Each structure stands twice: as structure tokens, then as C-alpha cells.
Simulated scan of single mutants.
Amino acid sequence: MKPLPEAVPFFSQWETPDMTMDVLAEGAGVALRRDPLWQGSGARTLDEYALWAANICGMACLKMILATRGEIVPTIELARRCTGYGGYVVNEDTIKGLIYAPFVSFVREAFGLRAEVMTNVATAEIPVILAGSRFFIASVSSWIRWPDREPPSKGGHLVLVTSASQQDFRFHNPSGHTRATQANASLAPSDFDRFFANRGIAVTI
């Protein structure tokens, strides 16, 4: 088995990564219809892309995990396949998910990944989790892109934690709005804790 690369590839949940502020200002349904790269998502239509892209932070995390071992799978293709396992529930113009347990079944059966749903996780436990798993998909507030602000609540968004110590957490944020808040974003554990909802999914490839 060839060794894994040290760097974990980054992918945004939008095909054009610098569209985050437009999405926040105008809404995904409006802003993402201007994304010139939308077809790279695996969406069949622009409507499908605009509906899904705001809901696929988890699939962006999975895409990054798979890319670490050299597999590139479009995010909406992943979402479509995950929906078949119950990882998302789609009702007309609304999408519920990511639902963790079906996701675990999906990645095991489709990609041979070992994954475990984890709840009641203290921030201080994440370095220990990563000592036994390659990645931790963490539920955080999307406001984690603004570490100097206090979030209105915790959870609702997923980031891919790639390393963690008692001094520094490193993670890829699929909806970061600048390079510094996208790939290899860095926060002290106490700052990460302000956004972390104490749950996530440990993944080993």
C-alpha cells in the first residue's frame, strides 16, 4: 500500500471556493447560479447544484478524505449516493442531513472506510481520537470562519479536522471565505471549543 501524502487536499462545498461571501449575502439559490464551475460538482443541472451545494459540507469533507488516497469524486455525486443509504432526506426544495449513521454505512460499503459516530465528545478528547483515526469530521457552527465572533449556536456545519494537539487544531473548512479560513485553518483548542457541538465522525482510511 503506497504511503499517504502529508498534505490533505482541500475542496470547498462550492465549485468556485471564493463564493462564500456572495452565498452569505444573496443566498445559495441566487449566488450559486453564477458559479461558472458548477458542472464539476457532478450536478445534472444548475438547479440541482444550487439546491445541494449549501447542504454538502459533509460530502466536501468526504471528498477531501478520498482525495487523500488519490480518489476524486464530485461532491453532488457523493451526496446522491449517500442519499440512497438514507444519509440525506430530500423533500422537494428542502434537504435534511447529513445523518451520521447512514453516512457511516455508506462510506464503509462504497469506499471501505472505517467510520464511527461519536457524541458527547469534549474538545480536549479530539487529539486522542485522531491518535487512533486519520480524520475527525466535527460538527461546528459555520461562524467558525470568524473566530473572533461569538456564534449564535453550536453545530449545523461540518469541518474536517486533520490534526489536533493541546496547542493547535488544524482543519479544512468547506465554507471558509478566505484562504486562511479554508485549507489548514488553525485555532487554539479553547477557540475551537466555542464552535464545537461535541459530536462528529471519526474516519480511518
Rank of each mutant, 00 (worst) to 15 (best):
155 G>F: 06
180 A>Y: 15
180 A>S: 15
16 T>V: 10
181 T>L: 09
25 A>H: 14
178 T>F: 13
35 D>L: 00
83 T>N: 07
15 E>V: 00
84 G>F: 12
82 C>K: 10
192 F>I: 05
123 T>D: 03
62 L>F: 05
21 M>K: 14
191 D>N: 14
69 R>A: 14
19 M>Y: 02
204 T>Y: 05
145 R>M: 09
80 R>G: 08
195 F>E: 02
117 V>K: 06
50 A>T: 01
59 M>T: 08
177 H>F: 12
132 G>W: 01
60 A>N: 04
5 P>S: 10
174 P>F: 00
177 H>W: 08
2 K>H: 14
46 L>D: 00
175 S>N: 11
185 A>H: 15
3 P>M: 09
36 P>R: 06
86 G>H: 05
181 T>K: 05
84 G>H: 07
193 D>I: 10
199 R>F: 11
196 F>P: 02
190 S>H: 13
58 G>M: 11
183 A>T: 09
129 I>Y: 00
93 D>P: 02
104 V>M: 08
133 S>Y: 11
92 E>Y: 10
130 L>W: 04
156 G>K: 02
38 W>V: 01
50 A>D: 02
184 N>D: 15
91 N>Q: 15
196 F>Q: 02
194 R>P: 14
30 V>H: 04
52 W>C: 00
107 V>G: 05
169 F>G: 04
145 R>S: 07
38 W>A: 01
4 L>M: 11
132 G>Q: 08
59 M>K: 08
193 D>C: 12
153 S>Q: 14
92 E>P: 03
24 L>V: 11
162 T>Y: 04
37 L>N: 11
171 F>P: 01
164 A>C: 12
27 G>S: 06
122 A>L: 12
139 S>F: 07
68 T>F: 11
33 R>L: 06
95 I>W: 02
4 L>N: 09
7 A>G: 10
29 G>Q: 07
34 R>I: 00
70 G>F: 10
144 I>W: 04
20 T>F: 03
9 P>D: 05
78 L>D: 02
66 L>I: 07
190 S>T: 15
184 N>Q: 13
163 S>F: 09
19 M>L: 13
131 A>E: 13
65 I>W: 06
41 S>P: 03
149 R>V: 09
11 F>T: 04
60 A>I: 02
101 A>I: 11
164 A>P: 00
134 R>E: 13
3 P>V: 06
133 S>P: 12
